[in-house]
């Protein structure tokens, strides 16, 4: 098997999996967030840390993605917990079984990190609350 490319994009295959599982909100990857006109709720997938391997010649690799779930605040500035819970529940249900996909010659397997919640709060972006979860990605395992 060929080496895992150091510039491999692990975010887009997860977006594709989430979209095919029925995610009904916009999903952006790798910083591709528009500067205006954001929808009422959306998901952003970005690398968290570098790509690592324990194998020789990078035959397989491991990395972590941060998946941020953004939900517009209510008109009084409060968090919308109902909408947050719905999106979070849908996201978590994706990982009830192993999710994997193949792109080109690379196989991707995703799982929620064991201690996944990295951040929960509001106003990382004006007018939105945010929950960020870490997702492990195994490449060519």
């Amino acid at each position: 098997m060929s080496a895992v490319p150091l510039n491999i994009d692990v975010s887009t295959p997860l977006r594709t999996l989430m979209a095919s599982a029925g995610a009904d909100c916009s999903i952006y990857v790798n910083g591709g967030l528009p500067s205006s006109g954001l929808p009422a709720s959306f998901i952003l997938i970005e690398p968290n840390g570098g790509i690592k391997t324990n194998a020789s010649k990078f035959g397989n690799a491991f990395c972590v993605l941060s998946v941020s779930i953004y939900v517009a605040l209510l008109s009084n500035g409060a968090v919308n917990p109902t909408k947050e819970d719905i999106l979070l529940g849908k996201f978590q249900s994706l990982f009830q079984s192993v999710i994997k996909t193949t792109v080109g010659s690379n196989h991707f397997t995703y799982e929620l990190s064991a201690n996944p919640m990295m951040y929960s709060g509001k106003s990382l972006i004006s007018g939105y609350s945010t929950k960020i979860l870490n997702v492990n990605c195994f490449i060519n395992y």
Binding site: S66, M118, Y119, G121, K122, N134
Partner: peptide, 12 residues
Amino acid sequence: IDGVLIDFRYEN
């Protein structure tokens, strides 16, 4: 932990 941000605290 090993380059992975596992917790981020920020208060607006």
